[in-house]
Design a protein around this nucleic acid. Structure first.
Lengths: 127, 127
DNA sequence: ATATTATTTAAGTATTTGCTTAAATAATAA
DNA sequence: TTATTATTTAAGCAAATACTTAAATAATAT
């Protein structure tokens, strides 16, 4: 259902064409931007960003290790990992009672973009 | 002051070297990751992401236009703009009583990374 | 079986967030 | 001057967030 809102900005110089163009842009990119905002929201927490960054470098890490590394309780880490897993950013591999979290393939490229300006630290080669 | 926490993860396979390496990595990247998380946190809100995206395409936009385009109240928009300005993502240009917000130069490159996988829409050429 | 270990889940809570409405600023127009 | 317009600021509030501690699962070890 097209809303076709009237333009309420009353500035003399208000550029109706620009406003309509922006609305069109949003129509086209709505879903992309919505999905993107969810990823960025996950990454926009310092603890989770560290988790993603470390897992990206190391290949995989378990909650217990991350708890050690980040000096946080295991449940606190676990809850962050769950969000990242729910958001499909991370996947898991179970080995006995240990659960290794790793970056899902489809996000590797994007995370390279995200971390582009972070001081380099080489990723571990997959063996 | 070096904390040098003992490793508490007791897994048989716990890789002490890896854990120490991660701690070193964090020491090096701490500030970068902290700053990055702030930017991503700003971008990780759907409304603000739309604002950044539109401003990136259009060059600059005012609160009144954004209020029209996003169908939100002017104060709601204004408060988002303030956060983006406080985070140094946006800058302003005043023309009479209208305030135009634009993407700060230092963030243009990074925002290209952020929006890399959003359906293309050409940026307006600067005239 | 019992104990230990790794992890998740749940409940509680203080803080942050994102809006709302109303009021305050500040520039322009009549 | 007074009115209008663009914007910000402030106060209030419901919802979301990120932790805490305790309990529940589940796999391993004794």
């Amino acid at each position: 259902m097209e809303k076709n809102n009237p333009i309420s900005c009353q500035r003399l110089m208000a550029d109706e064409v620009q406003i309509h163009s922006c609305r069109e842009t949003l129509k086209i990119t709505k879903d992309d931007l919505s999905n993107l905002s969810k990823i960025l929201n996950l990454a926009g927490n310092e603890v989770r960003l560290k988790i993603i960054y470390l897992i990206k470098i190391e290949g995989e890490l378990c909650p217990c290790d991350l708890s050690d590394i980040l000096d946080m309780t295991v449940p606190a880490i676990s809850q962050h990992l769950r969000k990242l897993k729910d958001g499909n950013v991370l996947g898991i591999r179970k080995v006995g009672q240990t659960i290794f979290y790793s970056l899902n393939k489809e996000y590797v490229k994007y995370m390279n973009n995200i971390f582009a300006f972070v001081q380099k630290k080489e990723t571990n080669p997959v063996e």
